[in-house]
Design a protein around this nucleic acid. Structure first.
Lengths: 324, 324
DNA sequence: TTGTATGCGTTATCAT
DNA sequence: ATGATAACGCATACAA
């Protein structure tokens, strides 16, 4: 296998010169550069990346841990990360967990083994104390409103946003409010559910069990929600929906049933993704892509300064349209 | 950063002994082994994987190129690959292309750079002549019925299977047959479409334009297909459907419309995934998982013998149930 | 059973 | 502008 020494010998230069050419360093004469490039082409040489990484002590690769990329929230988040990563020519290594902790563990071990320079947790299931053990292994960024300040974190104040949503619906005369969440067992969903129950309690509204709907992630879940809605004995007058996709599915299905939004039932969702504008859905803007960008930049800052641990909370805002 | 030399010094042994312990070699006395393990624990040491890879000249990682893992066909294929990979403790590195060629290129470059030992193309968009340039970079396996025999390949005779499906429907008295394919621009779909047109021509049946439906991948596409079916002026009496998921979605929707399968319309699909058994769908068994297993084993054989280039075609078979 | 010495393919430091 | 040479961290052939 051709290596840098072979190239040097054939081009009649030293290995350092070859390395300089490879890395686009200045101070190498045009003729030598050309000679090197020629033999590189002739031998169809390409550097051994392991050796580069070993010598550099870093890989310019960062792991991104997420449950799935097949969801608008995560794919948009990923896009935000990717754009910033490209600016620092950093490669992304995806760890798609499907919510399994061992995949997160795998990523952490690769970090320890210097196969990646850092990790961005777009979602985390592994307990914090386990995470802490990897603190010194490299920059770790968490995309959630975490309690510990050992790591930098970037997040939305999801609960505050959820409360804003509830209050907006209430101020529009709704009391009988149902909610659509993602994975009910997730930390975020739990917090939202708690906020919901407290708020309903505050306005003296009894919560029906079937007003809390889980597993609402994709557009097709919206259809299911509507079917469940039609079966409810005590019908809510409004839905607070975890993301635009589900809301869009709901509105489509509601129309199919001959009902109207917001006349028959109001819908307020989250994200402000493109579909919400098209379907004129009132939504709470979550800067998902920006979240990703901030996440990468936090990683970057942490890799320059190992004490950096800023906790960033991104703003959300209500976009009034026509579904409430 | 702690390295193997540091461990050796503190444990009072040589680096080779540490290496032996690390790699579970025999011929290490119990006390030295214990001493090494203790200092490893004390220093929270873990090997630098880049150095291991460099020294070994291999990584025990193989890239898997696929458009998406979020589809039963590919996830099952992947499962088959993964099971065999685990047996050879080989890690899988996923390259999810979303059908973009540059992602395939990326994988190939990583192969050249020795970041992975080989590549399994579960789907390929990149032209063959480009692929050929990477022939010497490492084992490459293609999961398709390729024409060139520079690489080992594993595949189903998709066209033959498709013809079997058509013939079965015809032998059951159907002439007005519609087909549901995936991405119409894909190689496989093109071949199937050609086979379809030829067969229809052979039995003297004129093909309606709207009898060829594309973009049929997931269960929810089945619903769409039925809606299109209901709108057709010239209705087919049978559907040959690219995969069970779509067929399942169709049957569900058909029932909702008050129609029956196979009384009103017959459905024959491919894959024999679990859902087809549950819904009693007549289907052509495609051993997807086995395909994955064979793919990995072909990679493995090729990595032992660089001339190995067997072309394996896996059998398919009709499973008669109750949808035709 | 253990240790020494060498190689893996780069990059970087320090001369010149 | 160019070249020797020492890291980087590990595995292993060989010697003992």
């Amino acid at each position: 296998m051709a290596n840098i020494r072979e190239i040097a010998r054939l081009a009649g230069v030293s290995v350092s010169t070859v390395s300089r050419v490879l890395n686009h360093h200045p101070y190498v004469s045009a003729d030598k550069r050309e000679a090197v490039l020629k033999t590189i082409r002739d031998l169809d040489y390409s550097p051994n990346i392991n050796a580069v990484h070993l010598s550099l002590g870093k890989t310019n690769m960062v792991g991104v841990v997420l449950p799935t990329i097949n969801h608008p929230y995560f794919s948009e988040l990923l896009e935000g990360i990717a754009e910033e990563a490209m600016k620092q020519n950093t490669q992304l290594v995806l760890f798609q967990t499907g919510y399994h902790q061992d995949k997160e563990y795998e990523a952490l071990e690769q970090l320890r083994g210097h196969l990646i320079d850092g990790i961005i947790f777009a979602s985390r299931a592994i307990p914090f104390d386990l995470l802490l053990k990897y603190k010194s292994a490299g920059p770790i960024v968490i995309c959630e409103d975490s309690d510990l300040d050992d790591f930098p974190s970037v997040s939305i104040e999801h609960v505050a946003a959820f409360n804003l949503g509830l209050e907006y619906l209430i101020s529009n005369g709704h009391k009988r409010i149902a909610i659509c969440l993602g994975r009910l067992e997730g930390t975020n969903s739990q917090k939202r559910q708690k906020a919901y129950e407290e708020k309903m309690d505050m306005i003296g509204q009894k919560v029906q069990e079937d007003w809390i709907l889980g597993n609402c992630l994709m557009i097709q879940d919206g259809k299911r929600v509507v079917n469940q809605y039609l079966q409810m004995n005590e019908k809510p007058t409004a839905f607070l929906v975890g993301n635009d996709q589900v809301a869009a599915g709901m509105i489509t299905e509601i129309a199919k049933q001959g009902l109207a939004v917001p006349e028959n039932v109001a819908i307020l969702s989250f994200d402000n993704h493109p579909i919400s504008e098209i379907m004129r859905i009132t939504t709470i803007d979550i800067p998902t892509k920006q979240l990703g960008a901030y996440a990468f930049n936090s990683f970057y800052k942490r890799s320059c300064d190992s004490t950096y641990a800023e906790k960033i909370a991104l703003p959300f805002k209500l976009i009034e349209r026509h579904s409430v």
